[in-house]
């Protein structure tokens, strides 16, 4: 479904990704792991068109994503839940959800999808008239994921959804990722929480200093000596 092929990405003159390749299949959870500054966010920003690769290509269901503007990516069925949530803080929770469903297919199903999102996150239903900026960290993350789901995406890009949350809330987020995936949505999950990510993903990639160094199923990587030492602390 998603195929990132040999992508080089620069910030100005500084190269941060070297020949990065990865794939995400239908209804798969794929984890993208790596330490701070490895280039995980850069990779998914390139998929969602915020950054353009200088080499390589990105294809999604036969469409060359690297050749269309960033605001058209969501129209192809890819929703990006950015690092740090990036909610519209002065708009209400409900308005944020509405903003997630601008594309025609999603707009038609707006009320229905919103009902599903509120069922997934009952807290959001309680807070729907509140400005998003007044929510707690965990609620904001739920609103950001909910806003992404409002697009009725085939692929959800999640950038560090558990960042800054208590272990309990983080666990809840991982559970929700599973639920979303069970509903048929593919997920590309960027995480620092390597252990939990490997437990729920079908496959995973490890990015180090802008290069892909490892890939495999969740079980394979959990058993990998290098992963154990560097990321799982065993």
């Amino acid at each position: 479904m998603l195929k990132v092929d040999g992508v080089d990405v620069f910030y100005g003159d500084m190269q941060v990704l070297w020949e990065v390749s990865l794939t995400v299949g239908d209804a798969e959870i794929v984890a993208l792991l790596g330490s701070n500054g490895a280039g995980k966010s850069t990779t998914i920003k390139t998929v969602s068109g915020l950054l353009k690769p200088q080499a390589g290509q990105i294809e999604f269901d036969g469409v060359r994503l690297d050749q269309i503007p960033a605001n058209r990516i969501i129209h192809n069925g890819i929703a990006h839940v950015p690092e740090g949530r990036r909610l519209f803080t002065e708009m209400t929770v409900e308005e944020n959800l509405i903003m997630g469903s601008l594309r025609p297919e999603a707009k038609r199903a707006r009320t229905e999808t919103m009902g599903w999102v509120y069922d997934l996150f009952p807290r959001l239903r309680e807070r729907r008239k509140q400005p998003a900026g007044t929510l707690s960290g965990g609620e904001q993350q739920m609103a950001a994921i909910g806003r992404g789901l409002m697009a009725k995406p085939k692929l959800l890009l999640l950038d560090e959804p558990s960042l800054g949350l208590s272990p309990l809330l983080a666990m809840e987020i991982f559970r929700i990722v599973k639920v979303i995936n069970d509903a048929g949505v593919a997920v590309l999950l960027v995480e620092q929480n390597v252990k939990r990510s490997l437990a729920i993903c079908h496959r995973a990639y490890v990015l180090e200093n802008g290069r892909m160094t490892l890939s495999g199923t969740g079980a394979e990587l959990s058993a990998n000596e290098k992963v154990k030492e560097a990321y799982l602390g065993i």
């Binding site: 915020l50 503007p69 960033a70 605001n71 058209r72 969501i74 803080t89 708009m91 903003m99």
Partner: peptide, 19 residues
């Protein structure tokens, strides 16, 4: 809403499909 969203966070608005 897209006008307000763009004022609050332009990059996030672009991700929502706003031109």
């Amino acid at each position: 809403r897209s006008v307000r969203a763009t004022a609050q966070d332009k990059e996030a608005a672009v991700l929502m499909g706003v031109d």
